[in-house]
């Protein structure tokens, strides 16, 4: 129940506003503990700050909230919303799991695609949703992302994507693995047409998504503290029997190792993306 309450819109920001409106803090308002600074933060304050704690910790965010936060008001038009995964392998429990996820998250799949404007510049966007099976990539996620890049190539538009994913959706077996190749092929086509793709890695971006479209942007950004990696940390520990270095597989770690361009806090993304789009106008 607590989680459901947390998901409900609480203020202007969540409903689509972007400015930090003055916060009216009620007595006894629900609070959320920050896993980083361990302070209790009133939810309304958290929302008005884009779900970022005063200590800088970035809480996870639903895809639609992110779309409202980053795009020009009223500019978002959803595409391919009718594409859904089935249960092609008749994997035990997967059909039920999809139904539960759909009713709990209010979304049909783990990614939302569409056309929007950011700083009055047109672009295609995709935003993955960690509330839907931890953003795992099945056939529908691959299909929607590949379709979006094809659409963007046809209309000569840039693409901006936000990733969050535990990896491939194993309940779809090999079909989910093939989505890595399918999305990569569509991105290559878009790229070869001279078009621009920015990807923003959010917490966590791992597995098959890291090994495909998360690492294929012309510019790769990440949110502070986001986990970014290929193999799961626990699996690495078990395989190598070594303890992992501090800060392993964080956005800062991949930045230091040369795999991303920059770390950009959530509240600063809109401005930077608008600037980058402006510099790549016509691409």
């Amino acid at each position: 129940m607590a989680l459901i309450n947390f998901l409900k819109p609480k203020n202007k920001l969540e409903e689509g506003g972007r400015t930090a409106a003055p916060v009216h803090e009620d007595e006894g308002e629900p609070e959320k503990k920050c896993p980083n600074c361990h302070k209790d933060i009133p939810l309304s304050r958290l929302w008005s700050n884009g779900l970022v704690c005063t200590c800088g910790y970035h809480f996870r965010m639903k895809a639609r909230q992110r779309i409202h936060m980053v795009t020009d008001k009223g500019s978002f038009q959803e595409l391919f919303s009718s594409v859904k995964s089935g249960n092609p392998l008749l994997f035990p429990g997967y059909g039920e799991k999809l139904e539960t996820m759909r009713s709990a998250s209010g979304e049909e799949e783990a990614v939302i695609c569409g056309e929007a404007q950011i700083g009055r510049q047109k672009c295609c966007i995709f935003v993955m949703d960690s509330y839907f099976m931890m953003g795992s990539m099945g056939s529908a996620v691959g299909e929607k992302i590949a379709s979006l890049f094809e659409y963007a190539a046809d209309h000569r538009m840039p693409v901006i994507g936000w990733t969050v994913s535990g990896g491939a959706r194993m309940q779809e077996g090999l079909l989910s693995l093939m989505q890595m190749a399918k999305t990569s092929a569509a991105i290559k086509k878009h790229s070869d047409a001279g078009l621009f793709y920015i990807v923003v890695l959010t917490n966590p971006t791992t597995g098959g998504v890291t090994a495909s479209f998360a690492m294929e942007g012309d510019i790769i950004l990440a949110e502070p503290g986001a986990t970014v990696g290929f193999a799961g940390a626990r699996v690495i520990e078990q395989t190598t029997k070594k303890s992992l270095p501090k800060g392993f597989q964080t956005a800062e770690f991949v930045l230091n190792h040369g795999f991303i361009d920059s770390i950009v806090p959530r509240r600063e993304q809109r401005k930077l993306l608008a600037e980058l789009l402006k510099m790549h106008r016509g691409g």
């Binding site: 890595m180 190749a181 990569s184 092929a185 890291t210 090994a211 495909s212 479209f213 998360a214 690492m215 294929e216 990696g229 290929f230 193999a231 799961g232 699996v235 690495i236 395989t239 190598t240 070594k242 992992l244 270095p245 392993f248 597989q249 770690f253 991949v254 190792h257 040369g258 795999f259």
Partner: peptide
């Protein structure tokens, strides 16, 4: 699945091949 593999961009290497 190892520390060095992650440090040198296992995900990026696979993505680039794809």
């Amino acid at each position: 699945c190892g520390i060095g593999a992650e440090e040198r961009g296992q995900g990026q290497a696979i993505a680039e091949n794809l």
